[in-house]
Design a protein around this nucleic acid. Structure first.
Length: 560
RNA sequence: GCGCCCGUAGCUCAGCUGGAUAGAGCGCCGGACUUCGAAUCCGUAGGUCGCAGGUUCGAAUCCUGCCGGGCGCGCCA
């Protein structure tokens, strides 16, 4: 509809110029939007205001000329008005909205999809938590945001690749191995001295038990060095399986799990360091190797190889991001917790330094999650071992509620996640509000089938029944269709800004319109045409609700 | 001290990237089920958009400076 109006305006403006009513035929960018107040029409444009300067005319004067040239010959316009400082308001004929419905039926699960991305290759890397402990809710937020962004981009014609980067090399893995090894000894009846910087959680015992189950006392028959190394590998593998399982319960699957160890074994880390050395971008100071990140916008230079010869995380990350771009992605998106924001400049610097385009690298920073129960904070702390895991949260409140709550906030806002609120089936917890629309419509359709022998196929065919469609004319019905018409642009803006919460809010609004309509008007009536028209409408609503929930990874139940 | 994020109704949050009279939900109060699912709906009340300047036809939105909260500033990961 916006497209139609935009064309109408441009045609009128050009015609006015040809007739010497306007002074210039260059028209700056103008917007068309839905006014907040019904009295301002269905759509409104600021055309006259933004053109005031180039036309050297008063906005209202421009608006008057334009309206004259728009005239009344468009099949979609009921009337136009000039208002306020120079807005032109368009009132659309109700029947002009009907094609939205047939479009929904035609496209069905692909309604609202676009080719905005034009097949561009995009990689979304998210979660990437160290496999040294269970996921917590903060990881969950990044996981859900990353996954939904990926879905939305896919719907917009991007070729999306989801990846998890496993930090399975380095000191923390050694520490994990030592932790498990010590717990094995403890389980064997030895008294142990368990260092503070080892992983304190009970899950270490679980892994130790599993290891003993599989390998018996083997770890005590070899050197401690060898045993710890084995424990590390064993434990990391277990943790990754555990992490993958938890993510699967959230409906998240990755296209690729990328191992840091494999990256190092491939020699790519060493070769990229050598390359930057050759280019004088890496230099030696105090027995360590430093990357000149400051020259590319970072606060200071960063160490890539410590004076003990060990590479830092940054070294792997440089190679990893080089590798991502080398794999041909047009855009690489990293979803990180906000506590890592200090890392952005150095990664960006490494990309710039390599001669690649830093704009291909985008970071989504999700703010931290405060876990609460009835308003009081639940203490968190990984090292202490006292924390509620993501799995426990999912088990308690359910996947759909967890996902939806995380997606009803802008990811840059800190999030209070209250376990008790998340379990409530009230409007404090809008996932059920939206799902209820879907279930309600399923229920009506079932009833239509049982009592009036109108099945889904018959409803779909109603688009060819002009008599029935013409019966859709209540204000609440037209309102619903207008709302459905906004779905495609909601997907597009969610993708453009990588903000899935826009979709969540859209669905809540649509749900509100539906519930209001439902309470005011009956769908199943004694009048066959009226009934058919309304079934046609609500089935379309249901499709859009389902599509939107799918993009957010939330189920659309037929009953609840 | 420096950097990033946040500050909007009693609470939790939106506000379509500068538009018209700033919106939802929860909570409070009052209503609606013999008819398609009351996990719903309808109505009332609630605001110096943290503060102060600036930019312009127009600012919650952009710029500057403060105030308050969170996070980060390692040859840790």
């Amino acid at each position: 509809m916006k497209k139609i109006i935009r064309q109408l305006i441009l045609d009128a403006a050009n015609k006015a110029f040809e007739n010497n009513k306007l002074n210039a035929n260059e028209f700056p960018e103008f917007s068309i939007e839905e006014p907040k107040v019904d009295a301002h029409g269905d759509l409104s444009t600021n055309f006259a205001m933004v053109n005031a300067k180039t036309q050297k005319m008063a906005p209202r004067k421009i608006a008057e000329i334009l309206i004259r040239y728009i005239g009344n010959n468009s099949p979609v316009i009921e009337k136009t008005e000039i208002a306020g400082p120079g807005f032109i308001n368009f009132f659309i004929l109700p029947a002009a909205w009907y094609p939205v419905l047939s479009d929904i039926y035609e496209k069905d699960t692909a309604y609202g999809f676009s080719n905005m991305g034009n097949g561009q290759k995009v990689q979304v890397e998210f979660v990437s938590a160290n496999p040294t402990g269970p996921l917590h809710v903060g990881h969950g937020r990044g996981a859900i945001v990353g996954d939904s962004v990926a879905s939305i981009l896919t719907a917009c014609g991007y070729d999306v690749h989801k990846e998890y980067y496993i930090n399975d090399a380095g000191k923390q893995i050694q520490t994990l191995g030592l932790s498990v090894f010590l717990r094995c000894r403890e389980l064997d009846g030895h008294s142990i001295d368990f260092p503070e910087d080892c992983y304190q959680g009970d899950y270490i015992y679980d892994i130790a038990r599993e290891l003993k189950q599989e390998k018996g006392d083997w770890v005590f028959t070899v050197s401690e060095e060898k045993a710890v190394a084995f424990c590390a590998k064993f434990a990391a593998d277990r943790m990754i399986i555990n992490i993958r399982n938890v993510l699967n319960t959230l409906g998240i699957e990755f296209d690729n799990w990328y191992s840091e160890q494999a990256l190092m074994d491939s020699g790519k880390v060493a070769s990229v360091i050598q390359k930057f050395k050759d280019q004088q971008l890496i230099y030696e100071k105090d027995d360590a190797l430093w990357f000149k990140t400051e020259a590319f916008g970072d606060e200071k230079d960063r160490v890539v190889v410590r004076n003990n010869g060990q590479g830092t995380y940054f070294a792997s990350d440089i190679a990893y991001h080089q590798d991502k771009l080398d794999r041909g992605f047009d855009r690489i998106i990293d979803v990180w917790g906000a506590d890592h924001h200090g890392y952005i400049p150095r990664i960006r610097a490494s990309i710039t330094a390599s001669g690649k385009d830093e704009n291909q690298f985008v970071v989504i920073l999700t703010q931290l999650v405060n876990l609460l129960r009835k308003g009081v904070p639940v203490s968190m702390g990984k090292r202490s071992g006292q924390f509620i895991t993501l799995k426990e949260v999912i088990d308690e409140v359910g996947k759909d509620a967890v996902r939806f709550i995380f997606l009803t906030r802008h990811y840059e806002s800190p999030l209070d996640f209250d376990l008790e609120v998340a379990k409530q089936k009230t409007n404090d917890n809008p996932v059920y509000y939206v799902q209820y629309v879907h279930a309600r419509i399923s229920s009506i359709i079932k009833k239509a089938q049982d009592e009036k022998q109108i099945g889904e196929n018959e409803i779909t065919d109603i688009c060819f029944d002009g008599k029935a469609v013409a019966r859709i004319k209540e204000p609440e019905e037209i309102q619903l269709i207008k709302h459905l018409a906004r779905y495609p642009e909601t997907i597009r803006s969610s993708a453009e800004y990588m903000e899935p919460h826009r979709m969540a809010f859209y669905l809540m609004d649509l749900a509100a319109d539906f519930h209001a309509y439902y309470n005011k008007h009956r769908v199943l009536t004694e009048d066959p045409d009226l009934t058919a028209g309304r079934l046609y409408l609500i089935f379309a609503v249901q499709k859009v609700i389902r599509n939107g929930l799918t993009l957010l990874g939330v189920s659309a139940p037929d009953s609840m």
